[in-house]
Nucleic acid binder design. Structure first.
Length: 485
DNA sequence: GTTTAGGTTTAG
């Protein structure tokens, strides 16, 4: 016994499962449902997995406690299950958990850190597991495993009539009747459609009762029905959710318990219908998923202007979890430490720019997950610190800052109002006074050209009717672009 | 020593 080896698990390929055997398996998730209450004593998770063998195997997991269920957030996630029993149902092999069952889940994204998701206090994990996860990720990336399933869509891209998954934060909730609950959520993006607003009694609302008009425009009212009401009852405002198989419906809607006059009809409504078909359900995201919302909010140029800084709003943007412990420092310490460091601060908002989003140029670098907001102040030369920053790309930031662009533009512009040359920064500049033909000639030398004009001795961006950026042959309208290095 | 569900859309 003293020489007993550490336990070594062996994993069955999914095309070699024999009825009645108890096995350990690895698989890529191609379908899943959030755990739902069964008619028996347990919650039930339903999932389908596959592996290199291309065999797709349905799995049914019964556990009394939700935390013992597989922590699956999306198709492509990788699960490792210990002690599942193969049995035949409808002439196919399925896997059901059996005594001593445990499950660990991993993100399926190639190159992402291999971080086990489990509530088990101790679990086996060795270099072979690391390798297996990475192999499954690579294999899955080369396959079209779930091309037709619904995908996570931000509110800004929601299509009427479509089913989709929504990643969002719960701001408030209220019961509508015994079969329907209202969830007020946002994801930091603005839906182009007018949103249905459900009016409920204030005294039954949990969470913030009212929001500023600006924020209200970002909030989607989601009605969840039947079996989802029980799940919704346990949710606390502030929690981050993924709502699966949500349906956006345009046109008149009626809601039980409410008269039609309580609804603004003909608006886009969000319904989570009863049942669990197509994975319909509500999943609670772990803290490290908050970044998803923070970065989408930032990429959208999300700003809020509430008189009362709510704890929920605060949470959305300030409590970024960076996956490491870091002490909070004061703003003066940040200033002293110079460029290129990452800090945690907690501060009170005193003022913000821009008040109108089209006044800002947003540069979003998907590689470094960094958002740069170049504000109107920069063009007017009113400030030295022209860039409001998030993220961690000191090189790019420094190159912009070191150039002191507004000063440089003003200087060069006074000498030669036609062209300003700036080769080091990721942006080149084009000024008023040139024709389109001249600008097209400049395209050969400069990758990115932002048209600006002079007014009142200052430079300013054109309004939204003009392209804000010329990149090669492409013209970008609006105010956003992905920078590629 | 093993009931529950067994993917496949509400119809508000």
């Amino acid at each position: 016994l003293s020489s007993a080896k550490a336990p070594k698990y062996t994993y069955a390929k999914l095309d070699s499962l024999k009825a009645g055997s108890v096995v350990n398996v690895y698989g890529v998730v191609v379908f899943f449902k959030q755990p739902f209450k069964s008619r028996g004593t347990d919650f039930c998770s339903s999932l389908k997995i596959t592996d290199h063998s291309n065999e797709k195997i349905g799995c049914t997991i019964f556990c009394e406690k939700l935390e013992d269920h597989p922590k699956i957030f999306r198709n492509g996630d990788i699960v490792r299950m210990h002690r599942v029993k193969a049995q035949v149902f409808n002439k196919s092999i399925t896997l059901v958990n059996t005594f001593g069952f445990s499950v660990v889940t991993f993100d399926g994204v190639k190159g992402a850190p291999v971080e086990p998701r489990t509530s088990s206090r101790s679990f086996h994990f060795d270099p072979d597991d690391q390798r297996t996860v990475e192999e499954l990720r690579s294999w899955a990336a080369s396959q079209a495993l779930f091309a037709s399933v619904t995908s996570t869509v931000p509110l800004s891209a929601v299509q009427p009539k479509a089913y989709f998954d929504l990643t969002c934060q719960l701001l408030a909730k209220a019961p509508v009747d015994t079969t329907c609950t209202l969830l007020r959520v946002w994801d930091g993006t603005r839906c182009p459609h007018t949103l249905l607003k459900v009016i409920v009694e204030p005294h039954v609302t949990e969470g913030q009762l009212s929001f500023s008009k600006e924020r209200e425009n970002l909030i989607a009212d989601v009605l969840v029905y039947d079996n989802h009401v029980e799940v919704a009852r346990k949710l606390k405002p502030g929690v981050f959710l993924r709502i699966y198989n949500l349906r956006a419906i345009a046109g008149s809607s009626t809601v039980p318990g409410l008269t039609r006059s309580q609804l603004q009809v003909d608006h886009l409504a969000f319904h989570l219908h009863g049942g669990t078909s197509y994975g319909r359900g509500i999943g609670i995201l772990p803290d490290n998923k908050k970044n998803v919302i923070c970065s989408s909010a930032a990429a959208e140029g999300w700003m809020f202007n509430d008189e009362h800084f709510s704890s929920v709003g605060w949470c959305l943007c300030s409590e970024r979890s960076c996956g490491h412990d870091m002490q909070k420092v004061t703003l003066s310490e940040v200033k002293r430490s110079g460029l290129g460091r990452v800090h945690h601060v907690r501060a009170q908002l005193k003022a913000y720019e821009p008040h109108r989003l089209h006044e800002a140029l947003k540069l979003y670098c998907s590689k470094s997950l960094t958002v740069y907001l170049l504000t109107q102040l920069m063009f007017e030369g009113k400030t030295k610190d022209v860039i409001l920053l998030m993220g961690n790309n000191p090189q790019l930031l420094e190159s912009i800052k070191a150039k002191n662009i507004s000063k440089e533009i003003s200087r060069l512009w006074s000498r030669n109002p036609s062209i300003i040359k700036s080769t080091k920064t990721p942006i080149s500049w084009y000024l008023t006074g040139s024709t389109l033909e001249e600008m097209c000639q400049l395209m050969a030398s400069y990758q990115n050209i932002i048209p600006v004009r002079a007014s009142g001795g200052h430079l300013s961006l054109f309004d939204l009717s003009a392209p804000f950026l010329f990149r090669g042959r492409k013209r970008y309208y609006g105010s956003e672009i992905n920078l590629t290095h």
